[in-house]
Design a protein around this nucleic acid. Structure first.
Lengths: 360, 360
DNA sequence: ATAGATTAATTGTATATACAATTATACAAT
DNA sequence: ATTGTATAATTGTATATACAATTAATCTAT
């Protein structure tokens, strides 16, 4: 029996549910005619008005289509299940660092799956990020790929939570937010920091300066890798040549740091720039100060931005792949394929160019 | 009398129409309670079931909200008229040239107005562009900012027409499509080409090579400006030192062109690179060939990408502003503010650095 | 063959009626 | 003060009935 007259759930609703079931199980297929209202009344024992109520709802919901004199028909339910296919990407600034490369990776992977990408620039500011969060929620995106801004962990957690509360999955890229269980895609920054430091050590460098920010998990990890590598090779850690900024990347400030370290160049043989844009500052300043790289001092970077004019030895990060992977991950979440947080850690590798002198 | 019982239009529909009128004219305001079904039955003389049919439709349409025991209420109709606020941006590749700067200008202006931006990379290919067009149409964007791909004029016209047929306004940026009346935002490429050529001439250069592609309106205009400047200064145009590619920007090909021109450096004193990425190739190759810039040969570019390591004298294009202006333009079109095509031509200006030697 | 009229099936519109469920409010009991 | 109970207003669910409108299919006349 289709209808349970003793159930507290309304009979029109029972019929509605039953009809949807039939449609989704393929009993009534696309373009099939379902029984007429009269027939349904007979089958179910309900009045025609009740039948109509149920059918009308399904018409409103896009399952059925009525045709006068012909009957009621099942609508193509493929077309109907038009899933939201827009994903948000939040980066600090599409113009700088590896954001363009990342965005391209994300976009290509999105395109492969007929998804679209809403681009948001946060300028690494919490307020701007919040602003974009509102708009992404308004546009009911299917998922969000977030490079967390330079905000407190609590603020970043709040951002993520707002999406999750709306059943919108979030994937973090590159930077991690401590204290929250969430998917992320990043690279092995600790090992990377270790490797490139070890590379310098093997080239005979023992006095290696480093400049970076501890605001982001990525650079913190690189710093730890750097320290571990020194310790493992019996080199004491010298706080005087570790410059750890605590804020976001501000050019002027880093120019000052670079100047400080370049002035100490007699005590130093190499510098580990926390990322390529810092290395670039060293190059600019070195030129200005008449310091030769790698003649007077060696430099390594991290990222491998596509600098065509300076031969920087650096740690190549698979940024494009990071974009792709985060899109893949968010799509699997959107489709509800996987449960539990999943972390993807991609591997970086050193790209040797001519910014490091060998002392051995 | 609200209901005309002799009208062929159904009475529930008459009631519906009347209710909508009352709401939109402000007789029933947001959060107002409308008469109960019983009262409406009395007022109209219709049966309660008929009243319900009308009211139910308005509930489905988002005008009204029923609350048991309390009555039926008018929903905030501001919130209801949720306008689409997503705009599509089609660029060849978000990673290269000035696309990031442009995207940022567009995005900032969009954000100001609570609009969002869908980013599409076309790789300058018609098929890819078409693919994105489909997705933008599916997502029913409110407008499109298009940098036309390297396709035929007919193909580009087709792309634009598809949007226009769907009442989606289009603004072209930078590149123009001949043969179609459409809004565009660009810079004064002809004058720019003229100016920077004249700049070289005034520095004493008379043998000035040029490399660019004639595929795009921008570079064609620059070439015309170059020719006009030479002619105006009584310098003959030498086809041997004009390299006009007809396709999109392909690095290898331009390396070849650059090599050709650099080999002729005894006959040339300066080169006008059609855009900065071409200039960059000259720098790379010059280094490889041991040619000094500007010692052996002077170079100017066009765009003013943010090269921090090479001191290129170039024509600064207000890319960011172009992005802003195109967003403003598309928004005014979305709001139906202006009729007839409108063209915005921004001015570029020379940025002097150290890639040009003065011969006078 | 074609145009026009008829038929019948089906959904569309409309009414009258009855009882159920929900819940703001008032009132009562603890 | 809190909890429980009753009341009444209103929407929610359900039925029986009737006629209207639409239109595919059939029949009829030319």
């Amino acid at each position: 029996m289709i209808i349970d007259r003793n159930s507290p759930v309304p009979q029109y609703f029972q019929l509605q549910t039953w009809l949807i079931e039939q449609i989704e199980q393929g009993v009534f297929k696309t373009n099939d005619k379902i029984p007429t209202e009269e027939e349904l009344a007979e089958i179910t024992g309900l009045a025609r008005a009740t039948i109509r109520q149920a059918v009308q709802n399904l018409v409103n919901m896009g399952y059925l289509e009525r045709k006068r004199r012909l009957g009621t028909f099942v609508i193509n339910n493929e077309a109907k299940s038009e899933t939201r296919t827009i994903v948000g990407l939040l980066v600090p600034d599409i113009r700088s660092g590896y954001a363009p490369e990342l965005a391209r990776g994300v976009e290509d992977e999105a395109a492969k799956n007929k998804h679209s990408l809403i681009l948001c620039d946060t300028d690494d500011l919490y307020v701007k990020t919040e602003f974009h969060v509102n708009r992404l929620l308004e546009n009911s995106v299917a998922g969000v790929i977030l490079m967390p801004p330079a905000a407190t962990d609590e603020q970043n957690q709040k951002i993520v939570t707002r999406f999750l509360n709306n059943n919108i999955p979030v994937v973090l890229v590159d930077r991690i937010i401590p204290g929250i269980e969430i998917d992320y895609v990043t690279t092995n920054n600790f090992e990377g920091g270790y490797e490139i430091t070890e590379y310098l050590i093997k080239k005979g460098h023992r006095k290696i300066g480093i400049v970076l920010s501890t605001l982001f998990s990525t650079e913190r990890d690189r710093l730890e890798g750097y320290k571990k590598a020194l310790t493992d090779h019996g080199i004491p850690i010298d706080p005087d040549i570790i410059i750890a900024d605590s804020g976001p990347f501000i050019q002027n400030r880093y120019f000052k740091y670079a100047r400080t370290l370049l002035k100490k160049r007699n005590d130093l043989s190499a510098i580990f720039a926390g990322h390529d844009r810092i290395a670039l500052i060293f190059y600019s300043l070195a030129k200005e100060m008449g310091v030769s790289i790698p003649g007077d001092i060696s430099i390594v970077g991290y990222d491998d931005l596509h600098f065509t004019t300076i031969p920087l030895t650096t740690m190549h990060q698979p940024i494009y792949e990071m974009g792709q992977e985060s899109m893949k991950l968010i799509m699997s979440r959107i489709n509800g394929e996987d449960k539990g947080p999943r972390d993807i850690v991609l591997k970086s590798h050193i790209v040797e160019r001519e910014s490091v002198d060998s002392l051995v």
